[in-house]
């Protein structure tokens, strides 16, 4: 963290962010439990970098993404954007905040309104935020389409006329329309075919180079995360269990869960086929997480102390960068 503090203030600064959802029991019962989707996470995102949130289903990465763009209100915590706390924003303040942050969604089939032409889809944010006159807006749409590798004469067509890859390009063009400072991309590649994924990855990198915006990239695909990220946070059951630079996470993973994730992700090279035993067990319920470290029931290195207290995020090791933190009490022994 010290390295980050020395330079310019971070674009995003999240402190103890929490998002809980109440669950109702039966018909007549009141709130009986809470889903701890995001359970106290703190991190900083620097201007112009790609910060990735990684984890398996139910780890809270998508909920966290939706809290960042304020599609969800945080239950607790502080979320500073450019130094100002946005967690309690509402009304006009929230409206203005939303023009600076945009989101790209996973499913290019359900995230575009099927009754709007793609010209209308991309122009809509400009209209809502009243930027320019109609003619200027249309010129901007043409320019955006060219930027994402589509032809401006496609403007009058409807989403169903496009392939998955093209639709994701349209979603990206719409996200770019307001010239945002931050783009939250939630699994933007997982619905795409392998041969199209590389096209969209290259486009995302190219656009960031041109416009210098910041990405928060949400993914379960470690290969893509290693390729795209500057810094990474690994999440498990609503908490960040490890965070650091790309090299920290991939060269010197400190948390047993990070190591298990890396060992589980299939490598497209039969020469590296190993006889690595998979880790046991399944992801526990976020309604009733295990006591202490939530990973301990699946962890090969768990000892009694792991069940007693939630381990704090602490510096991971001497070899690492100062911002490499891991939440494991045995990180220095294993």
């Amino acid at each position: 963290m010290s390295a980050a503090e020395g330079s310019a203030p971070p674009l995003l600064d999240a402190r103890g962010l929490v998002k809980h959802y109440p669950v109702r029991g039966g018909f007549f019962s009141r709130q009986s439990a809470v889903v701890r989707a995001v359970d106290g996470v703190s991190f900083r995102v620097r201007r112009g970098e790609t910060f990735s949130l990684v984890g398996e289903s139910g780890c809270g990465k998508s909920t966290l993404g939706r809290v960042l763009v304020r599609l969800e209100d945080p239950t607790d915590g502080v979320l500073r954007f450019g130094g100002i706390d946005t967690a309690k924003f509402s009304g006009r303040e929230l409206f203005r905040y939303r023009s600076k942050i945009q989101m790209i969604f996973q499913d290019p089939y359900s995230s575009l309104n099927p009754r709007m032409t793609i010209g209308e889809v991309i122009r809509e944010p400009l209209e809502i935020h009243r930027i320019g006159r109609r003619r200027q807006q249309e010129e901007r749409v043409e320019q955006l389409l060219r930027e994402v590798g589509l032809s401006p004469d496609m403007m009058e067509r409807y989403p169903h006329e496009f392939s998955g890859g093209q639709r994701q390009r349209i979603g990206i063009a719409r996200a770019l329309a307001l010239d945002p400072e931050l783009i939250v991309a939630d699994e933007p590649l997982s619905a795409l075919d392998v041969s199209v994924q590389a096209q969209v990855i290259n486009l995302m990198v190219h656009l960031q180079r041109e416009h210098h915006f910041t990405y928060v990239f949400i993914s379960h695909d470690l290969m893509v995360v290693e390729y795209l990220s500057d810094r990474i946070a690994i999440m498990y059951l609503g908490k960040i269990v490890e965070t650091g630079t790309r090299e920290d996470i991939f060269e010197r993973p400190a948390h047993p869960y990070t190591r298990a994730l890396i060992a589980s992700s299939p490598v497209p090279d039969p020469a590296q086929r190993g006889e690595v035993q998979p880790i046991k067990g399944e992801i526990p319920s976020p309604i009733n997480p295990p006591a202490g470290c939530a990973f301990h029931p699946r962890c090969l290195f768990a000892i009694d102390d792991c069940r007693k207290a939630v381990p704090p995020l602490e510096p991971a090791g001497r070899e690492s960068s100062p911002e490499h933190l891991a939440a494991c009490i045995r990180k220095h022994e294993i």
């Binding site: 790609t50 392939s163 890859g165 093209q166 075919d193 392998v194 041969s195 199209v196 994924q197 590389a198 096209q199 990855i201 290259n202 990198v205 290969m223 893509v224 290693e226 390729y227 795209l228 790309r246 991939f250 490598v267 497209p268 090279d269």
Partner: peptide, 25 residues
Amino acid sequence: HGLLRSLPHKGLTREKALPMIEGTV
């Protein structure tokens, strides 16, 4: 050949563009 080359792999970062297959199925 194109499919295999287009996959991100260990040690590769965005400094190098991914070789890609143009077009769609």
